[in-house]
Amino acid sequence: MTTMKTARIHEYGDARVIRYEAVPRPRPGFGEVLVHVAGTSFNPTEAALRAGMLRAFLPVDMPYTLGWDVAGTVAEVGAGAEGFAVGDRVIGRLDGGGAAAEYVSAPAAVLVAAPASVSLATAAALPVAGLTAWQAVHEHGNVATGRRVLVNGAGGGVGGFVTQLAGLAGAEVIATASPRSTEAVLRQGADQVIDYTAGPVGAALDERVDILLNLVPLSAPDAAALVPLVRPGGRIVSIATPIAPAADAGVRATHMVARNDVAHLAALAQLVDAAELRIDVSESRPLADLADVHRLSESGRTRGKVVVIPC
């Protein structure tokens, strides 16, 4: 049987549990296509999964192949799979993982046409982070023209898309980022960047915001300190630490988990091809280096999206 290389775990633990090893190449099942993977991308939540921090509500069977983002070319079409042909360029979010490999069998229903204006490896950075950003901005944040929006954690992979989508929606965007991410965040359209390492974010705000989009884990005191930055009647959306304003603050708060939505993903791909949305890939690494990518992320030394390429 033909084999392929993959990055997978056989147990929970630190980055050393990630093994780069040969396994049999899969065949597509009913409703699936076999994708020749051009790239996946790293998402910090995958490090939490690998460490066992998510096992209570996201258990996985071992051995488990990492990789939720996929971009590649359809190599084989299984029975009952519709909408794609061999050779089609596709992207998608694979909730069961498996994209950290040379090939992956994926449900055709979660795939969409890849943007034609960027490489497939670059497009691999779009699904998970892009879907999270789209739903934070449009569904939960209801960002619109004239709104004043604070993006807390704009230097990360999701943050780059949130900053751009909020700007496209017509909002004034104030973003927090470290000095090493400031230039990139400004390129993505932020009207103001606050260096969160220099002191309290509120000290740099001249007035309160309508919407706070929080993208980073926070301590309880840090989360509480953000609430007064939102005007009464405003809203908070967090993809990380839940933020619970006091009842008398007059602020609505939502803790969101992004869902897989092919309509949203197709809309994001169209924005990329219309040159209205940039995919900021800070680094590309070979699949054999995935453990190092996990280590760098856990040490806080990654920026934007890191693409991982099977080779």
Rank of each mutant, 00 (worst) to 15 (best):
Q192M: 09
G189H: 09
I239K: 02
V23E: 13
Y103F: 12
E21L: 08
G78T: 09
Q164M: 14
A154P: 03
P179V: 03
L34R: 06
V151C: 11
A116R: 12
A246M: 15
L58A: 13
L165M: 07
V77A: 07
P232F: 11
V35K: 02
P127E: 01
E11I: 04
A190K: 00
L131M: 12
A267R: 12
G72S: 06
A136T: 09
A51C: 13
L58W: 10
A75S: 15
T122F: 02
Q270S: 07
D206M: 01
V251D: 02
I279D: 09
H140S: 03
A275R: 15
A136M: 13
G159D: 04
T176H: 13
V281G: 02
L111S: 01
V209A: 02
M256C: 01
T241C: 04
L165A: 05
D14H: 08
A51P: 03
V128R: 01
L287G: 06
G72F: 02
L34P: 14
R285E: 04
A225G: 09
V162T: 06
R231T: 13
E298P: 09
T254C: 10
I174R: 02
Q135K: 08
A109Y: 12
L213F: 14
R50N: 11
A275P: 06
A85H: 10
A190I: 06
D273P: 12
T163G: 05
G29K: 09
L111E: 00
L212A: 09
R25K: 13
L94H: 14
D14S: 13
T302G: 02
G97H: 10
G130C: 05
V185Q: 11
L205V: 04
D292F: 07
A166C: 07
N43M: 00
R180N: 05
